[in-house]
Write a protein that binds this DNA or RNA. Structure first.
Lengths: 114, 114
DNA sequence: GTATATTACCTATAGCCAATAGGTAGTCAA
DNA sequence: TTGACTACCTATTGGCTATAGGTAATATAC
């Protein structure tokens, strides 16, 4: 088996999925496409990443699922719960803090050594 | 045992360590402090993260180690190799791409759904 | 008619990063 | 001599994510 590429980041898939669902209800396959398109292929989450994540978030009460039949196909539409909104806010805050931290280290790494 | 916090990101510790060592040679304990200070506590990597990372990077030829005795204490000073510089460039590029991808999704998640 | 591509869902396995929790040893101040 | 700080280290655990599959329906092409 080929050695898998290293994961580039943790927590971000969850952040992105929650953010998309904060805008409107979506189904898994749609989320996979939206992340790929909206990030211009910078972030590509396979279905094997998104579906288990959705199930985990659902199990934690972060979102609600509703199955619907559209054009002969079953779709599971997800929607953010209040808990999911809270979680999203936390992740956005953490992302911002980390991003700033990385930025300051990349730009001026000597600041920490004074 | 307390449930450990989830990792907030992968590849970033490596990025930060390489970036610091690109500026000047440093030793492990100093790196731990520099990351904490320069990021204003946004990113705190314990010694148990940094030391194994340094050893792994050393084993991969990303950096060179030189032991030195300073004020009665042993310090292992690390320096970036050419390979390490290359790796740093790659990680900086990837960080930029991912950061932009996350940014566009956070700001305008509907772009991907047209 | 039957391949192929696309949509849409799913699970199992494996790898690796990082977080925790320890440990050793030297220096210095109270 | 106790505590605080410096400076190094390892073992274990856990969780995220990547891969690699699988099912089934629709639409298109040949």
């Amino acid at each position: 088996m080929k050695k898998p590429n290293p994961p580039f980041m943790t927590g971000v898939p969850e952040l992105l999925v929650l953010r998309l669902l904060a805008e409107r209800e979506m189904y898994g396959y749609e989320i996979v496409r939206a992340i790929r398109l909206s990030s211009r292929d910078a972030i590509v989450l396979a279905e094997g990443v998104v579906y288990p994540l959705l199930h985990a978030l659902d199990a934690k009460g972060m979102l609600t699922a509703k199955e619907r039949k559209v054009e002969g196909r079953n779709r599971v539409y997800y929607r953010l719960s209040a808990k999911g909104h809270k979680r999203l806010d936390d992740l956005i805050g953490e992302w911002g803090r980390v991003q700033e931290g990385v930025h300051s280290l990349l730009e001026d790494p000597s600041r920490g050594s004074i």
